[in-house]
Design a protein around this nucleic acid. Structure first.
Length: 853
RNA sequence: GCCGGAGUGGCGGAAGGGCAGACGCGGCCGACUUAAAAUCGGUUGGGGGCAACCUCGUGCGGGUUCGAAUCCCGCCUUCGGCACCA
């Protein structure tokens, strides 16, 4: 790069050169151990600040900076408020991308992951974040994942883990596929293109539905509203009743087989005109009549091969087949036909419904298509004899509805009728009130290599036997050969597979499934507190002293997965006596996401990834940090654009110049040296102080509420104010010096390097010993500096601002009104008329003169 | 379809019943310079006026209020999430 020779005026002070300053201070902080948390320190209250640990994809991009640097600013701000801050970092090191890279490039997932982590550690250090690297956790480390295994064994003992069959997407060549590995409408494998099928596999579950009700209680965790709402919907509690129908006798069947359905509308039971079983319902096979068997089997098979999307698409036409059996409605003994149809889900409720087409849109659509009876049983009072208009089901559920065509219950209010129907059924043992949740148990089995091995051994005699705790960890073998396919290599690894049964010592085989990585991320903040502890997963004293985590920041994309799994996990740990708390974190904040310049998610494959390294080389880390905070509200994110970064860099250059050379006069500045607005020296001194302390008041509030963009704007304003006084008689004086000191302290959390450099030079100039700016106490606002002797009050006429009047700060309402009405502009508009009303808003902050035309 | 978030200058955004457009980018004018860059100062929502000023403006249409970007009702666009959950 050709650089013009430094012009004369720029040689007076040293140029702001972040590239030389930043690494120097980073090294110094590390040498001093400034970022290492002393957990046992008393006196300073603990403050655990957590940011979601990253997946080690290889390179830190600008999105990581966007996530991390404001969090670092919060940490530094809290340190300056006397808190004992813990800000750890680690890596979510297991998962599919490592395996994909491994298969593609024929390398080892561990090597790929670990070298990515090395690179990211290096890049992280260039941010200047105060991470406590001693606490680092890497989930692919056996020292970490052995505790996943240990927790699993405890859950098993406590009955919180169990095994059950469940379907997976299966490719004949590449084994189990993750959702994103199934491509196209024809559902082919992403690698080999083969047709994907469904397979039922035995898999492990965690019994998290046990906590469904408790998870709906958010009183001990502060979530952003959208997260709370999404979790509530995800859990999906609905109240209703279970009703037992029995099958009717037929030529092929004795009948009397109970079929339980769940309904939220027991009041509509008399309107049930058919019944529907999910294709997965266990009784489908047994109840199907011989002449229907072929059709039913074909239908069930087809349902199994359809994509979730296809099957669950709401605008798809309803399909289904009769199974050739009938059920008896317990309230009226009526025989109704039974269908199997895929609009009923196997995994929800009882997998069977009573269909009430008059009062349910889905049942209505199905009944119309198959020409089934539609019987109205609920009507608005006074419209009992009315017919359905044929446009659809009648859903509205209001207070003035009554039951019709409902036997003994006819004429009752719908609610009351529903209650009586349930009570009557309950008396006969044919029903009861029930609550159903949309939430399912947590399926943790993954047919993958790169994860935590599930510590189970299958013995021909004893079945699934837990690995004894003393034998943990079950290590993932390092030498793996994918043999060019996506099939989990553990299933071919004889050394791994063959083990003696822990009970009888006879030959047995290991479980080859590994755990969902959400298991890893459900407790890592506890491990950060004692990452190398060998005799247990967590240190109880530290956990109780430092958690729930004070503040957790991360992306909203985890609203219902990670953030819910981790809550469930914490409740399980609590029930095992491992922790005392009900929730893992006190407060969660969702920062926005930085997208590529094209508005799409940043990813290597899209080629829209912004590498921060070149920006740092050009502007330095402080500028990049500050720019990311300045761009907009932190919870908003948005497409990446470097437009404007120069403005932030210019701001830091100006802070640099103000700190090192207050009295300098720009040759190009016509106003250099004069005081603004014709102020005299005393007024200038007072307004400098006022500006500094007002900024302090506002910036403090902005840090506390994570409004970093306005925080930076206000610091820019203060530097602009200082700039106006640069070279004047007050430049370098005591008020200037105080303002400069406040500016550096306020800027320190956001731009840690330049402030540290200027702070140390300040100490040099004064002959004081150096002490880091980052351990200074946050300054306090001097209210007397902020107070002003006069106020300027906007005067509106009919809501439009027409003038401003200046009144003494202590003017009372009458005086303000007099001043407002005395305004020449107001008088001109009044034109001799008297105002109808004069309103003062906000204790005299504004006056509105109302005239009716 | 249902549930959420967001729509404000050329651009990122500020103000969350009381001065719309803070701060920054970009633009324009000027200073410094042989010149350019950098730096510094001024100016910058639209329309009108020589001016002081006037007028219109926060996605659209209504409403509440002395006063609405902000609250309410009905839409539109866009981004997330869920999606036959009985």
């Amino acid at each position: 790069m050709t650089q013009a020779p430094e012009s004369n005026e720029r040689t007076r002070i040293e140029r702001y050169d972040p590239v030389s300053i930043e690494p120097r201070w980073q090294a110094r902080w590390e040498e001093l151990g400034l970022h290492r948390t002393k957990f046992d320190e008393s006196g300073r209250p603990p403050y655990y600040l957590l940011t979601m640990y990253p997946y080690p994809s290889g390179d830190l991009h600008i999105g990581h900076w966007y996530i991390v640097t404001p969090t670092d600013a919060i940490a530094r701000f809290q340190v300056m408020h006397g808190k004992n801050v813990f800000l750890p970092i680690g890596f979510d090191a297991f998962g599919l991308p490592a395996e994909n890279a491994a298969i593609k490039n024929n390398i080892n997932p561990r090597d790929w992951t670990m070298s990515n982590i090395d690179n990211m550690r290096r890049q992280f250090r260039t941010m200047g974040a105060r991470f406590d690297w001693d606490a680092e956790v890497v989930t692919a480390d056996p020292d970490y994942y052995r505790w996943n295994q240990w927790f699993f064994l405890q859950f098993l003992k406590a009955g919180l883990a169990y095994r059950a069959k469940s379907p997976v997407d299966w490719c004949p060549n590449d084994g189990t596929l993750a959702r994103e590995q199934v491509e196209g409408v024809d559902r082919h494998c992403w690698r080999c293109g083969a047709k994907v099928e469904k397979r039922d596999l035995d898999q492990w579950y965690l019994r998290v539905t046990k906590y469904a009700d408790e998870l709906l209680d958010f009183s001990q965790i502060q979530f952003p509203d959208p997260v709370r709402i999404m979790q509530t919907n995800w859990i999906g509690r609905s109240e209703g009743a279970q009703v037992v129908f029995e099958t009717a006798p037929s030529p092929h069947h004795a009948g009397g087989e109970p079929l339980t359905v769940f309904t939220t509308r027991p009041d509509t039971l008399y309107g049930a005109t058919f019944m529907v079983l999910a294709p997965e319902h266990p009784l489908v096979g047994a109840l199907t009549a011989p002449e229907r068997r072929k059709a039913v089997e074909a239908y069930v098979t087809k349902a199994g091969t359809q994509t979730e999307i296809e099957r669950l698409s709401t605008d798809r036409e309803k399909t289904g087949v009769l199974i050739g059996a009938e059920a008896i409605n317990p309230v009226n003994g009526e025989r109704i036909p039974i269908f199997v149809a895929d609009y009923v889900l196997g995994g929800y409720g009882t997998g069977a419904i009573m269909a009430v087409p008059a009062h349910d849109e889905r049942d209505y659509a199905f009944a119309r298509k198959f020409g089934l009876a539609i019987r109205r049983v609920v009507a608005r009072r006074g419209e009992e004899s009315g017919e359905l208009d044929g446009a659809g089901a009648y859903i509205a559920h209001s207070d003035d509805e009554v039951l019709v065509n409902s036997g003994e219950q006819t004429g009752l209010a719908a609610d009351e009728g529903g209650r009586r129907i349930v009570a009557a059924l309950q008396a006969q043992g044919k029903g009861k009130a029930a609550i159903t949740y949309r939430l399912r148990d947590w399926l943790i089995s993954r047919q993958r290599y790169w994860g935590t091995p599930i510590p189970i051994i299958y013995c021909p005699t004893h079945g699934a036997v837990p690995v004894p705790e003393a034998d943990l960890p079950v290590r993932l073998p390092n030498n793996v050969d994918y043999e060019g396919s996506g099939v989990n290599p553990l299933t071919r690894d004889e050394t791994f597979l063959n083990v003696p049964c822990p009970i009888d010592g006879e030959p047995a085989r290991r479980e080859t499934d590994t755990m969902d990585t959400f298991m890893d991320s459900s407790w890592y903040w506890y491990r950060y507190l004692s990452p190398r502890k060998q005799d247990g997963p967590l240190d109880h004293d530290l956990v109780e002293g430092w958690t729930p985590v004070e503040q957790y920041t991360g992306g909203a994309e985890h609203a219902v997965m990670h953030l819910l799994y981790a809550r469930e996990f914490t409740k399980m740990l609590r029930d095992l006596g491992m922790v005392q708390q009900n929730e893992p974190w006190k407060r969660v904040f969702n920062q926005g996401q930085i997208l590529g310049a094209d508005g799409e998610r940043m990813s290597k494959s899209r080629g829209n990834v912004q590498d921060p390294d070149e920006l740092i080389a050009k502007y330095g880390a402080d500028t990049v940090r500050l720019f990311l905070m300045f761009m907009g509200p932190w919870d908003q994110g948005g497409p990446w654009s470097p437009t404007g970064i120069g403005g932030v860099h210019r701001f830091l250059n100006r802070v640099w110049a103000l700190a090192l050379d207050p009295t300098y006069k720009e040759p190009g500045d016509p106003d250099a040296g004069t005081l603004p607005d014709g102020q005299d020296e005393a007024v200038a001194r007072a307004s400098l102080r006022a500006a500094a302390h007002k900024t302090l008041r506002d910036v403090t509030a902005d840090y506390e509420s994570f409004h970093f963009n306005t925080m930076v704007a206000k610091l820019m304003e203060l530097s602009n104010t200082l700039f106006r006084y640069r070279g004047s008689v007050v430049a370098g004086g005591p008020e200037w010096d105080e303002a400069m000191r406040l500016l550096l302290l306020m800027l320190a959390p956001a731009a840690p390097h330049i402030t540290e450099e200027l702070w140390s030079r300040r100490a040099d100039v004064r002959g004081e010993a150096w002490s880091t700016v980052h351990l200074q106490r946050w300054p306090t606002v001097d209210q007397s500096a902020v107070a002003e002797s006069t106020r300027e009050i906007p005067v509106q006429v009919n809501g439009k601002v027409r003038d401003r009047v200046v009144v003494p700060a202590n003017a009372d309402a009458a005086a303000i009104e007099r001043a407002a009405l005395a305004s020449a502009k107001v008088q001109a508009i009044l034109a001799g008329r008297a105002p109808d009303r004069v309103i003062q808003a906000g204790g005299g902050r504004l006056v509105n003169v109302v005239i009716r035309e």
